[in-house]
């Protein structure tokens, strides 16, 4: 099936099998390997991307169903190369060391940005509740939560 959608702001036309998952389309066909696949059972959240500005798990969405819609992956966040051009949430993860191995980080970032847009003044409790769908097996979440709070503050300050 031919589908057309917007990916990180640019139009994409591609021919896909109905059984292809969005995560597979991104990684295997379009070479955007920033979106990670951890569990492949929609539990871990490493594969979170934005679909029309909302966070979703790309391992549990058919590629055909994003036809005509807007998809953003972790590759679409930064304005360019270098720390200064990172998205405020990426920068917050960098500054607060919100990772260890980094495998879950793309999903954490995409989920955290969706969170920050909906929570102008977030509390730590709200962050922890929101991250229920993003699993990190290294950090114990302390620095991730710190990063999300800092990133949300920066985003909501228009930084």
């Amino acid at each position: 099936m031919k589908i057309s959608f917007k990916l990180n702001g640019k139009p994409v036309d591609v021919d896909v099998e109905p059984s292809l998952l969005l995560s597979e389309l991104l990684r295997d066909k379009l070479d955007l390997t920033g979106t990670h696949v951890g569990c492949d059972t929609s539990q871990c959240g490493a594969c979170v991307v934005h679909l029309d500005d909302e966070s979703v798990k790309s391992c549990t969405i058919l590629a055909v169903s994003v036809d005509g819609r807007d998809v953003t992956t972790v590759e679409g966040l930064a304005l360019g190369e270098g720390i200064d051009r990172l998205h405020p949430m990426q920068r917050a993860f960098h500054e607060n060391h919100g990772l260890q191995c980094g495998f879950c980080t793309p999903g954490m970032l995409m989920s955290a940005i969706d969170f920050a847009k909906r929570h102008p003044k977030p509390t730590e409790h709200e962050v922890r509740q929101w991250l229920e769908g993003n699993i990190c097996r290294c950090t114990g979440y302390q620095n991730i939560v710190r990063s999300v709070l800092a990133g949300a503050a920066a985003m909501n300050a228009g930084n």
Binding site: S42, G45, V48, E54, S55, V56, K57, I61, E132
Partner: peptide
């Protein structure tokens, strides 16, 4: 229900 990403679908 579930988590935020599940609730979005």
């Amino acid at each position: 229900i579930g988590d935020p990403q599940v609730r979005n679908r």
